[in-house]
Design a protein around this nucleic acid. Structure first.
Length: 257
DNA sequence: ATGGCAAACCAAGTTTGA
């Protein structure tokens, strides 16, 4: 969302308008003590946030319960010298669903150390997810967030522009698909077929009105949860107006079960 | 109808994002 502090009023208005039970947020861009918890609690949501610096930051807010908060997943890679963890994953159980808010590393450039970090990160996410399902094949798990991968050519407005860039390379797409193959289905795409369905538009160059976007935000659901999926959409309206994030919210509706 | 980068650090300019 590109800063939770800069968009408190927009978040509150969106929560009231959208009437969601659970929301997974990425890029809060603040430390724990800076998080505006009251924005959520005032509207009846419990919230769990993980932030270490002005970068990254992830949160889960819920009005259907929020329990067993977990910061990071097992063997989640870190970055830097010395290697340090980053605030890119938080999990909580909300209404019987294990909800993960995930902010996959950007990758920056194909020859940048952040690119291999990104691939390593996705691989460890796959391993963690596979382990959760091995332990409980009936687990209801949602992997939500900014994956920073456009899995299909139709997920960017023009593949020629992305020649030599991150987000569309075969290793990134393979790493994303490996998470899917581990048992986590994209429950949004079936209800929002492309081309031209995006979740992110750059601030620069009139990207939004020109419809130059990318589909990089996903909700991947375990088999037991995916069976309950009843609808999905991208809230393109929220990208409009003053003070919008460069990402749009992604909705999924699940049948009670 | 929309919006021409934005937000973090912190006080100028760099880093990050994708």
């Amino acid at each position: 969302m590109n800063s939770v502090r800069a968009r408190g009023e927009r978040i509150a208005a969106w929560l009231e308008r959208s009437d969601v039970d659970v929301v997974a947020i990425q890029e809060t861009k603040c430390k724990a003590e800076q998080f505006p918890e009251q924005v959520f609690t005032d509207l009846g949501y419990e919230v769990a946030h993980h932030g270490l610096s002005q970068w990254n930051g992830v949160a889960v807010a819920s009005r259907v319960g929020l329990a067993d908060v977990q910061v990071g997943f097992p063997e989640q890679p870190g970055f830097g010298d010395p290697v340090a963890p980053e605030a890119r994953a938080i999990g909580a159980t909300c209404g019987g669903v294990r909800v993960w808010s995930l902010y996959i590393p950007n990758g920056r450039a194909i020859d940048d150390p952040h690119y291999t970090y990104k691939l390593r990160w996705l691989d460890r996410l796959r391993a963690a997810g596979a382990e959760w399902l091995a332990r409980d094949p009936a687990a209801q798990i949602a992997l939500c967030g900014d994956f920073n991968v456009a899995p299909q050519d139709a997920d960017v407005w023009d593949m020629d522009v992305f020649e030599g860039s991150t987000h569309v390379t075969a290793p990134e797409r393979d790493a994303f698909q490996a998470v899917v193959d581990a048992g986590f289905a994209d429950v949004v795409r079936p209800y929002t077929p492309g081309p031209g369905v995006y979740t992110y538009w750059d601030y620069k160059g009139l990207a939004f009105p020109k419809r130059k976007g990318m589909r990089i935000d996903f909700v991947l659901a375990s088999p037991a949860l995916a069976r309950r999926a009843a609808g999905a959409s991208v809230d393109r309206e929220e990208r409009k107006g003053k003070g919008a994030s460069d990402h749009a919210p992604v909705f999924v509706e699940f049948a009670s079960g």
